[in-house]
């Protein structure tokens, strides 16, 4: 589904991602872990189409299409979803209006009739239940005045509404208490399907107690320096990132 080959990315002349490779197939959940500043969020932004970064080298294909030929909105309509680490506040734009427009622009792109008001409301109620939103969050302006937990819940709710093929969750767990974390993880698990894939970017292992990954990658200084199964996350938790760093250095020497 997603194939990243030798990706090199810089911002203002400073290299952040330095030759990264990653393969994600349908039905898989990948976790990308790593210390602060290793390039995790940059990777997520580049896949989603943020224009502030310069792609110096390498390629990303999504469903066999070159992703760099597609505008961010095209990527979204093709099924890529980015859950933001810091969701943006958009005063005066209600979540309902925002999502209805997003869904209908996607449907138009796919050659489908726009969703009617009634259909949309029904879908919204269904998805609210799924991600355990009971409040009237959807009548409010997008993220405006939301608590940290509400913002993250809202990201998962939007993901549920948009039903992406590839979801990238950028530190969705940061700043969440354990209850909110469970709600977010539950939402992600309920949305898992054999034909979609999820990339979970996280700093801590604890999210992976609830979202069980098929693969864990350690991103350090712009490269994936170690990949493994879900047990790698536990090992990291016990031994810390220094352990991988040392191991990698030894590898390089030998």
């Amino acid at each position: 589904m997603l194939s990243i080959k030798n990706l090199t990315v810089s911002i203002h002349g400073k290299q952040i991602i330095k030759g990264l490779n990653l393969e994600v197939k349908e039905g898989e959940v990948h976790a990308i872990m790593g210390p602060n500043g290793s390039g995790k969020s940059t990777l997520a932004s580049v896949i989603a189409g943020r224009e502030m970064f310069d792609v110096d080298e390498g390629e990303i294909t999504y469903m066999d299409q070159d992703i760099f030929d597609m505008a961010p909105e095209t990527r979204a309509r093709e099924g890529i979803f980015l859950g933001f680490q810091y969701p943006v506040e958009i005063p005066g734009v209600s979540i309902a209006n925002f999502l209805r427009t997003a869904i209908n622009e996607k449907r138009k792109y796919l050659g489908l009739e726009p969703m009617t008001g009634a259909e949309f409301l029904k879908l919204m109620e269904e998805k609210k239940k799924m991600v355990e939103i009971h409040s009237k969050l959807t009548n409010r302006s997008v993220n405006e005045g939301f608590s940290g937990g509400e913002k993250k819940k809202n990201e998962i709710f939007q993901m549920a509404m948009l039903e992406p093929r590839l979801a990238i969750l950028d530190e969705t767990d940061s700043g969440l208490d354990i209850d909110a974390l469970k709600v977010v993880a539950n939402g992600v698990n309920k949305l898992r399907r054999p034909d979609n894939a999820t990339i979970v970017i996280t700093h801590y292992q604890r999210l992976l107690d609830y979202i069980v990954p098929d693969f864990v990658h350690v991103l350090y200084d712009g490269r994936i320096i170690k990949s493994g199964g879900k047990e790698l996350a536990l090992e990291l938790e016990n031994k810390g990132y220094d352990w991988v760093k040392k191991e990698t250095k030894t590898d390089t020497v030998s």
Binding site: P72, A76, I90, E105, L162
Partner: peptide
């Protein structure tokens, strides 16, 4: 930032701009 956020959900630039202006 809001522009990118909206585009990343599938709204084209024009629609996103209009929504923000109408909200403003």
């Amino acid at each position: 930032d809001a522009m990118f956020y909206m585009r990343s959900r599938g709204l084209c630039e024009r629609t996103a701009r209009q929504m923000m202006m109408i909200a403003f």
